[in-house]
Nucleic acid binder design. Structure first.
Lengths: 198, 198
DNA sequence: GCCATGCGAAACGCTACCGTCTCGCATGGC
DNA sequence: GCCATGCGAGACGGTAGCGTTTCGCATGGC
């Protein structure tokens, strides 16, 4: 009975799962290869081997499709730790994010960030579903670390977070990939030395 | 006599300096406001109050115009220091770059980086005229600092540079401005503590 | 087997911009 | 004053994608 609530039983041919997947995969492929601006409905239909009408039936348009395609490919789990050590938790979280974004996913992420300048819906989706939760966690954690006496004297939380996270993201700005695990670990180690008491 | 070399004296109406400036200003305005993808020749002509033919007479097309407009607005001087202290030199150079890019210029810079994905000419111009000279200097300087014993034990030069420069650039990725002087200085200070002997 | 609905294909009219071209006037060196 | 050249305006045919619509076939719950 809980099921039947606001679910009218559909009649006729059901939605094709195969087309749905082909469309999302094609959209993601174009997003990675050509960027958000070149993600066109006609292009996706061509690439996916479907009709435009099928896309317009299930998605509102370019931004809606891009958001769906991107988040169908990215692992959104926050994957947070809470050991007693803020340093260890930040290291785990940053390296974990890198793993989630590494490879084509990182290019798609960069494409979505760029697309956010054209589409408020894209900007807002990336913010709400990716950036905000991680930023909020980081702010809480650094504040907690400060209270717990785990930071060196005079370390500004804002600056500390910028230093920890910037090396992860900034390569995307220049069209490069997310840093390799060990390169990123070296950056985090270095930043951590300046930030955390041991 | 040196002057006349390969300069045939022009006859007829000379090029309008006023139109040239109006076109560059309009292109920059659009670049900042809408990004590289939306920088169209017709749009610039409209904004500048000129004819399309005037633009096509003097520029090859979109990428050529964007490059000219961007570099007409940005201060390209390297503004390098060479005191004995690598730390002081890096701080001065990073804060100097921030000053050169702060404000609308930073948005234009981000637009050019994004535009580089569509236009190899734009990518190459930004690399050759901005990124490469600065990256080369930084690599030489960090290597020199290592030799001079100004770095802490075991600091990897690559990681050190990533840590120093990333906080400057990374806000552009999220559509934010170049950091304020004091915020950036706090990041550099923090990074420097982990990197440089004092 | 009925038939509501989904499907791919493709045509529709529309908009934006491309890069070229032609026009008639403006400008300034000679 | 001559006249080569620059100028703004805008027409031109072309390309690309928009979002809608129509078509005839496919599918699967009932």
């Amino acid at each position: 009975m809980a099921e039947t609530f606001e679910s009218t039983k559909p009649r006729g041919r059901p939605r094709s799962e195969q087309s749905r997947e082909a469309i999302l995969i094609a959209a993601l492929k174009i997003l990675v290869r050509d960027g958000y601006q070149k993600l066109t409905i006609e292009g996706v239909a061509r690439e996916a081997g479907t009709g435009k009408s099928t896309i317009y039936r299930w998605w509102d348009g370019r931004s809606d499709l891009a958001i769906d395609a991107f988040f169908s490919a990215v692992d959104e789990t926050l994957d947070l730790q809470d050991t007693g050590s803020a340093e260890a938790d930040f290291r785990a979280q940053i390296l974990g994010m890198a793993n989630q974004l590494r490879g084509p996913t990182g290019r798609a992420f960069a494409a979505m960030l760029a697309g956010g300048r054209d589409s408020p819906a894209v900007a807002s989706a990336v913010r709400k579903r990716w950036l905000d939760p991680r930023r909020d966690w980081a702010r809480r954690r650094i504040a907690w670390a400060a209270k717990a006496g785990q930071l060196h004297e005079g370390v500004e939380p804002r600056a500390a977070l910028a230093l920890l996270y910037s090396p992860l993201y900034s390569p995307l700005l220049f069209g490069n990939d997310i840093p390799a695990q060990k390169d990123l670990a070296a950056c985090v180690d270095l930043a951590a030395q300046a930030i955390f008491r041991r």
